[in-house]
């Protein structure tokens, strides 16, 4: 470092302090950029691969410059299953619909049930409240594979296997512990005085919940929804074993495209993944302001 640079550096340090966050300086910005790129690289590579032809996708060393093609995206929905076969409908439109419908419905159900339950746990504690909460969480302490056989048998016996109702019920049940715990922590943060003030202002308990408590935890609901959605969206094991041809979700269908007579079609897989990313990215993007407030709830003095 030259002597001339020293006063400038000192000045920059000073201004950084006075201007607070958001002025971390070039060094840190570039550092953060490099780390972000390392994290983002797999996603970037998948998106690039989605636009490559089969030979470009397999090229060694990897090709950075290539002629982009939409062929893979077309093939997601319509392709031949053998080299000389006729292109047929892959039903991927149905699988995408299934993924959206099943994840969306089960997350919404878990939010409705979980939010009400969480409010109960927070505001009307039972005798042994903590024990109940703990028991609810224990369902998430086992790996899913441990319970898969009894669940499989239950689904066979009740005829729920392969139905929307079955898989939605299961995902709802699996989302509930997380939803209840998250939402309870948000409700716990609220001032009970505010609710009492509303009661004195003439509101019934139902109105207190909907008009006073709920609007204060929208950020929490958004955060919980995004986390639940991501978990459900990517779920593979239950979907593999408990959905049928009509209710198959994208992760299962994606895995089943592997194979056939030309080996793994990386371009095709990448195209499916790229499409599969879009809904979650959109949801997260629209909720991101709430998300940040949601996950930092209670850490800032109000």
């Amino acid at each position: 470092m030259t002597d001339a640079a020293l006063p400038r550096l000192a000045m920059r340090r000073k201004s950084r302090v006075s201007r607070g966050v958001g002025h971390a300086g070039w060094g840190r910005t570039i550092g953060a950029g490099v780390v972000s790129l390392i994290y983002f690289f797999p996603v970037l590579w998948i998106v690039l691969t989605a636009f490559k032809s089969h030979s470009d996708a397999l090229a060694v060393p990897p090709k950075w410059l290539f002629t982009p093609t939409l062929e893979n995206f077309v093939q997601v929905f319509n392709r031949a299953y053998s080299a000389d076969g006729v292109a047929v409908d892959t039903k991927f439109d149905l699988f995408f619909f299934n993924s959206i419908f099943i994840a969306g419905t089960s997350v919404a159900l878990a939010l409705i049930i979980g939010t009400l339950a969480a409010f109960g746990f927070s505001r009307y504690p039972l005798k042994g409240n903590q024990t109940y909460l703990f028991i609810i969480l224990t369902t998430r302490m086992l790996p899913a594979i441990v319970v898969i056989i009894p669940i499989l048998i239950m689904f066979r016996v009740t005829g729920l296997a392969g139905t929307y109702v079955g898989i939605i019920m299961l995902y709802t049940a699996f989302n509930l512990p997380f939803t209840i715990w998250m939402m309870k922590s948000f409700f716990d943060e609220l001032s009970p005085d505010v609710e009492d003030a509303a009661r004195l202002d003439g509101s019934s308990d139902t109105k207190v919940f909907f008009k006073i408590c709920m609007p204060q935890v929208y950020a929490g609901i958004a955060a919980t929804a995004v986390f639940g959605l991501i978990l459900t969206w990517n779920e593979y094991l239950f979907a593999l074993l408990l959905t049928g041809v009509q209710t198959r979700t994208v992760p299962v269908a994606m895995a089943q495209t592997i194979g056939g007579d030309i080996g793994v079609r990386w371009g095709l897989l990448a195209a499916i993944e790229t499409l599969f990313l879009i809904p979650v990215i959109l949801v997260t993007f629209f909720l991101q302001n709430h998300l940040l407030r949601g996950v930092t709830f209670g850490t800032v003095k109000r």
Partner: peptide, 11 residues
Amino acid sequence: SMVFQTFALYP
């Protein structure tokens, strides 16, 4: 009607 120590305004 009542005024609370924490004010209890609807945030």
